[in-house]
Amino acid sequence: GYPFSNLDRKSVSSHTDASKKAIKHVQNKDGSITSTIETVINSEPNMSPEFLLEAHNYDPAKWKVKQSVSNQWSVISTKKGKQFNFQSKIVVEPIGNEIDTDELINLIVSHKEPYKREPPILLQSDSYLVVPAFDTHFNGETLKTYTKSLNKELNLINSERWQDTCLILGGDVAHVDSFNSTTTKGTQLETTDVARTVDEMEIYFETLISAILKHSNHLQLISTFGNHDKTVGYLFARLLERAYRNQPNMSFDIEPSQFKAYMLGRNFIGATHGNKGQKNYVANFASRFAEMWGRAKNRELFTGHLHTEMSKDLGGFVQRQVSTRKPTDTWTDELGVVATKNFELVQYSKEETETVYYV
């Protein structure tokens, strides 16, 4: 569907220097995609729709050009002779107007440049940390609200040497799941700028990750489905996986799933958004993750969804329903939801819960 990956690249490879190609793809509200490219090509382009599609990594058999603005100018290279700087912006739509979400995600993620590998500093510690991020509902205007909490999180992370850290993307990290400002199920919400939303998410979480990698021997990132942002949330987890693919002390569990678990020392850390399976948490996690469950000395479950804090012992399995600093919107206001607004982090020893921090 989307970009040609195993392709017949003959017409493009004969023109383009792929090492210098920079492409950006943005989905539009009407389902079309705007693609921009800056590159150097070895011969003058013919500017045909087929050439433009292939230059932007789209299969002409499955895509058509809706609009285009392209230009080129020649340059002289002492090593390669005459070449052309090529700039192009096109709007494309699939033939048949069908959009494959999985392939769109693959297309976007493939253009995220991985960060340079940073050699980890390994120092033995008996301190472990969970950073649960549930219901942040980033909407392009949220980051300034979370800055104070982010600074507190960074202060805590920087204050210790952590043996292992688990960062949980617990669902509803983004407020909406489409350019039409709707949730996964199509519920209409306030107008939201998705591009700015993802930018905010990158700033917030990459700042956290950078600090954790400097002060923790290992970082495990896990993600679970929310009810607002299944597609955007999964896309964002994939972007982070791509960005940190070279980091040797960071691991990922981002497969699309409602229920996740990780062993933090001998602490079983479960995670689910909190909108499904509430009546069977113990049996669900004990059966799904039997090996980890059996090894654990301490078992805890992180949930969100309700935007309120609650701690409950389910019978040897403590549920920590975490709150959020998300500003009150029309939906929560009409429901009459009143809750203390905070984020929290939880510190563990190898086998026990030590401290809950509110930030």
Rank of each mutant, 00 (worst) to 15 (best):
L7G: 14
S11G: 07
S19W: 10
K20E: 03
A22C: 04
H25V: 12
H25I: 08
Q27Y: 01
S32N: 07
T34D: 07
E38I: 05
V40P: 02
V40Y: 01
N46D: 15
M47Y: 14
A55L: 13
A55F: 11
W63F: 13
S68W: 09
W73A: 11
W73T: 12
S74Y: 00
K79G: 05
K89W: 00
I90P: 09
I90R: 05
N97T: 13
T101G: 08
E103H: 07
L123R: 12
Q124Y: 02
Y128E: 02
F134H: 11
G140E: 09
E141S: 13
Y146D: 08
L150K: 14
L154H: 04
L156F: 06
S159R: 11
W162S: 04
T165N: 06
G170D: 00
N180G: 12
S181E: 00
T184Y: 14
T187G: 00
T187C: 06
L189D: 13
D193M: 06
T197M: 14
D199T: 13
M201C: 07
F205N: 08
E206W: 00
T207E: 05
H215R: 11
S216V: 06
F225Y: 10
T231I: 13
T231Y: 03
L239G: 01
R245A: 15
N246Q: 11
N246H: 13
P248M: 06
F252M: 11
D253M: 06
Y262G: 02
M263V: 05
G265V: 02
R266M: 09
N267W: 05
I269D: 00
G270M: 04
T272F: 03
N275D: 14
N284F: 03
F285N: 03
A286L: 02
R288N: 07
F289L: 07
M292V: 00
M292P: 05
G304T: 07
G304P: 08
S311M: 10
K312T: 06
L314M: 10
G316F: 02
Q321C: 13
V322N: 03
R325T: 14
D329A: 07
T330Y: 14
W331I: 15
L335D: 15
K341M: 05
F343A: 10
E351P: 00
T353L: 14
E354H: 05
T355N: 10
T355G: 01
Y357P: 09
Y357I: 09
